[in-house]
Amino acid sequence: MCGMMASYRILSTLANGQARRNLFGPVDREQLQVEYQAALRKDLEEASQRWGFDFISDKPLESSDFQWEGVPGTRVPLLYRTCMLGQAEGQRAPGTAAVIPKRGRVELPQSDKENIPRTPERCVLNMENWEKTPERRESAGVKRKQTNITDFYQAKRRVVGMPRKSGE
């Protein structure tokens, strides 16, 4: 990984001035991780309360101001389907240099590329729970009162559903 070393060296020299410094001493990594997990859990709890939905077990809460209704994954706009990013990345072997002519720019190998911010892997699992709409058709007996966001996409459904090959 000689390329990686080179770019690391450039970064180090860039940050070699007095600005590079640790302000408040060492960070307690374990404690930080504990606090991070707690913060995420708290966010999730707050979201559960707000939306009346248990995002972990994927079920609506008993005491909810909302009426939840399952919608099949295929009816959800492409944007809201899970792990589009992950799939696209998985297709490319890690470390392979990819050239994207459309942008007129040579992409660095994945490992070398300065981080394109990604959701940390541990969170991806959570995100899946967040974004998956439950497919429980049998509960559709409940009369719908609320406008569903997918209502606005029905006319375009087929277009959106088509695999987008161009440019990708």
Binding site: Y8, L14, A15, R21, N22, E114
Partner: peptide, 8 residues
Amino acid sequence: EKLCIYTD
């Protein structure tokens, strides 16, 4: 990465 280097 850059920001982490700046935190030493």
